[in-house]
Amino acid sequence: MIDFKNLHKRFGKLTVLDGLDLAIKKGGISAILGPNGSGKTTLIKCLLGMVIPNEGEITFKDESVLKKWDYRNDLNYLPQIANFPPNLTVFELIQMVKNLRPKESNEKELIDLFGLNDSLQKKLGNLSGGTKQKVNIVLAFMFDSELLILDEPTNGLDPIALIYLKELIQKEKEKGKTILITTHIMSFVDEVADDIVFLLDGKIYFKGSIDELKKHTNIDNLEHAIANLISKQYA
């Protein structure tokens, strides 16, 4: 469904993506992992069209995404930091995003799920970090799209909201959605991810299921297996 071919990205002298090739199939949850600065966020942003690669090609549903924008109607994105215009209310923000996308949405359900009904008329500037993240999640999940990209989705969530989030992700998976997640919480990866993509030095260092990873590293604990991968960079 998504194909990255020979992707290069440099920020000044710093090479972030160095001839990266990656194909992600339709359906299932892929966790994109890697040490700090390995290019996870850059990779995602390339897909979203926020970062423009120096070289290479990205296709989504067999069509190039470079210099295009309408393909984004088929994907949802949950950004890492939830920071919204402080003087709009939650309701207005949701209306605005709905306005921008010509698509059906089920925000009502999600608002109920995360208990945001009381906050609807509050200004976004007055919300706590966790509540903002809930709003963020509502915005990301309210559209029915084939691809979901979640950047650190667990940030600042309370345990109950976290459970709801996991359920939400599972539900989407069952609908046959493709989901990309970046996170540092390994237990979360262990719980939800089917596949792991491990980035190192701007390339794919490992790609496969969790079991394959454990086999590859000979370590049975995911967290340590990942640590093992990262330590190779420091070696």
Binding site: G49, R72, N73, N76, P79, N83, F84, V97, L100
Partner: peptide
């Protein structure tokens, strides 16, 4: 509004 802009950038606009 940098972060919010990023959210908007991920929308089909």
């Amino acid at each position: 509004s940098k972060e919010f802009t990023e959210l908007l950038l991920a929308q089909p606009i």
